[in-house]
Design a protein around this nucleic acid. Structure first.
Length: 616
DNA sequence: CCACTACTAT
């Protein structure tokens, strides 16, 4: 059984023979009986020099070197000291290169990088390699592989060192390796480093392909550096790298997500200019970003007319649009078409439908869809559950929330930041502010990080409680935690101040938000209009109302209601009715509040036409 | 590369 080493032991009972003698003996044994199992029973120590001599013996085939090496590895007590062993690893890698066994070589290098005893600074490894007088092609292959191996192990800093080492030593870098590393960085969401590597590539004249360029553009878009991404595109265009539909779709997606209509236009023009046609993804993105269902339909039809085959994504985008528009009939019709075409609905497709059902309060339908989805082998994810949760919460069915939490936890889906926000908001709706706060505090104590929505919800609770001091403190806390206040955050705070009668503070906040690049919206103005009404400055309220038009902001039912009710209270019923007409012409549907205000205005103008109607 | 979830105003 352990014939091999027993023989070694018998022939070399003492240390009288040289390392070379022992190595020769082992080499011969490996060469003459390549299939003998290697086992050890009595050898207690193998000198590293012997190992090295065997591994570098050109007569020993690389495969046998590997066999010998693996044997040593499974018997670590045979050896001692890491540096010689590191050297053996390198020697073995070189032998494996010789036999073009790159896969095996890579796993040996992987051991060098991941084994505690072998890990060493790059300089050490480099000096070890430079000691062997190797052809530069081999050295190149070795470092190139090391570059990839570091990236595979998320050791990007070390990988960058390898890159720099190669550049400084005139070794050329394979662009495919760079792409592999770019991909690894992308997987780890290290977008800054992704871009840094790209810059190194450009600097080192590594070939840039449309693939690597698009990956970098995507990375920059993901960290909201769209302008930078655009610059990369232009820079690479200048170097003759031709963008394709992936490149443009990536930028298009970024512009759509950031609501930059101008950017979208520019990309569409550039696509036309460069002869890059729309693909099904382009249509998906445009449908998703379109601001009317009619335009979405037009895009979908256009795509079909072009003969582009629809995929599940574009169907899902369209279904989602119909669901959000409350048109479940068309949504289900498209779902059927999708299935008829032999496409398979995804968790997103079901998600869109379930969301539509939930938003329409059709929880029965939502549950049926959930069951349908599961019987089709699709496992609901946390988003699906949160969607259902929101549906139940919006109907005030908080017991169902508890049940869902149980189901989710049974699937290993602990509550996330969405879960807590949905529940807290539901509690706010029924004025259970204390419970809502406790819910959010529980989230924080569980280590779930608060985001802009969390802070906004909390801040809004304080505003509703009239505690503007705490609201402000929350605002500052979110800033210090690096969460950017959104238009919603400002609106909640502005509304809080308006209701407190601190209208100047509210106006100041509107100025602040614009300095921060956050544009006021209909909510902002509605709160301010209301605030001015509260303190009896109807003229100011009307001024703000007119200001909306010049900002392309469309007043909605709530905005009109606020003004109509204020004018009514003051007995200015003509003006109130004039606004009512305007509101109808704008296609808005008045609610009960409007009518009772208007009716009230008639009473007050009949009974006391000259009072200011401010009494309550 | 894309598609599904949460926060604000009467």
């Amino acid at each position: 059984m352990s014939k091999f080493f027993n023989t070694v032991k018998r022939v070399f009972p003492a240390t009288s023979k040289t390392h070379q003698d022992i190595a020769d003996f082992i080499s011969n044994a490996l060469i003459s009986s390549p299939y003998n199992p290697l086992q050890l029973s009595s050898i207690t120590h193998l000198d590293p020099k012997v190992i090295h001599l065997v591994l570098t013996n050109p007569r020993v085939p690389p495969q046998s070197c590997l066999r010998f090496f693996k044997f040593i590895q499974t018997n670590p007590s045979l050896i001692s000291g890491y540096k010689p062993i590191l050297q053996s690893h390198v020697a073995l890698v070189l032998r494996l290169f010789e036999a073009r066994k790159f896969g095996e070589a890579k796993s040996v290098l992987n051991a060098v990088v991941t084994t505690d005893d072998l890990r060493c600074p790059l300089s050490e490894l480099a000096s070890l390699v430079s000691r062997e007088s190797l052809e530069s092609k081999i050295v190149e292959t070795l470092f190139d592989m090391l570059f990839r191996v570091y990236a595979d192990n998320k050791k990007f800093k070390e990988g960058f060192e390898v890159f720099d080492y190669m550049v400084n030593n005139g070794l050329s870098i394979d662009d495919r390796s760079c792409i592999a590393v770019l991909l690894a960085l992308k997987r780890c969401r290290q977008f800054e480093s992704l871009y840094a590597l790209f810059r190194k590539m450009v600097e080192a004249n590594v070939k840039i392909t449309v693939y690597s360029m698009t990956m970098v553009i995507d990375g920059l878009c993901k960290i909201k550096k769209i302008d930078e991404a655009r610059k990369v595109l232009d820079e690479m265009l200048g170097k003759g790298v031709k963008p394709n539909e992936y490149t443009y779709n990536t930028l298009l997606d970024a512009y759509i997500k950031s609501m930059d209509a101008e950017g979208v236009e520019e990309i569409l023009k550039a696509m036309q200019r460069d002869g890059v046609g729309f693909d099904v993804t382009t249509y998906t993105l445009l449908i998703d970003g379109s601001n009317s269902i009619e335009y979405a339909e037009k895009l979908f039809d256009e795509m079909r007319e072009k003969g582009l085959p629809a995929d599940v994504h574009v169907y899902t985008a369209m279904i989602s649009r119909y669901c959000k528009a409350g048109n479940m009939r068309k949504a289900f019709y498209l779902f059927d078409t999708l299935v008829e075409e032999g496409l398979v609905p995804s968790v997103h497709t079901y998600g869109a439908l379930i969301n539509g059902a939930c938003k329409g309060g059709q929880m029965k339908a939502a549950e049926i869809l959930l069951g349908d989805m599961q019987s089709n082998g699709i496992d609901p994810n946390r988003i699906i559950f949160n969607t259902l949760l929101d549906g139940y919460c919006k109907l005030g069915m908080l017991d169902e929330a508890k049940r869902l939490r149980g189901v989710m936890e049974g699937k290993g889906l602990g509550p996330d930041v969405y879960y807590y926000s949905i529940v807290a908001t539901a509690l706010c709706k029924v004025s259970r502010y204390e419970d809502a706060k406790q819910t959010l505090f529980e989230m924080l104590s569980k280590g779930v990080a608060a985001n802009t929505v969390t802070y906004t919800t909390l801040l809004d609770i304080y505003c509703k409680e009239g505690n503007l001091v705490e609201a402000r403190r929350t605002f500052r806390e979110m800033l210090s935690k690096g969460e950017k206040p959104s238009v919603v955050t400002y609106n909640a705070l502005i509304d809080g101040y308006c209701k407190k009668g601190e209208i100047n503070e509210a106006h100041q906040l509107m100025a602040d938000m614009q300095v921060e690049g956050v544009a006021p919206d209909t909510y902002t103005y509605t709160s301010l209009v209301h605030g001015e009404c509260i303190r009896g400055k109807t003229a100011e309220a009307l001024k703000l109302f007119n200001e909306m038009q010049s900002r392309d902001l469309v007043p909605n039912v709530v905005t009109y209601t606020v003004l109509i009710s204020d004018l009514s209270k003051q007995g200015r019923s003509d003006e109130a009715f004039r606004l009512y007409e305007e509101m109808i012409e704008a296609g808005l549907t008045p609610d009960d509040t409007v009518y009772s205000s208007l009716v009230g205005s008639l009473h007050s103008s009949e009974s006391k036409p000259d009072t200011d109607g401010k009494q309550k």
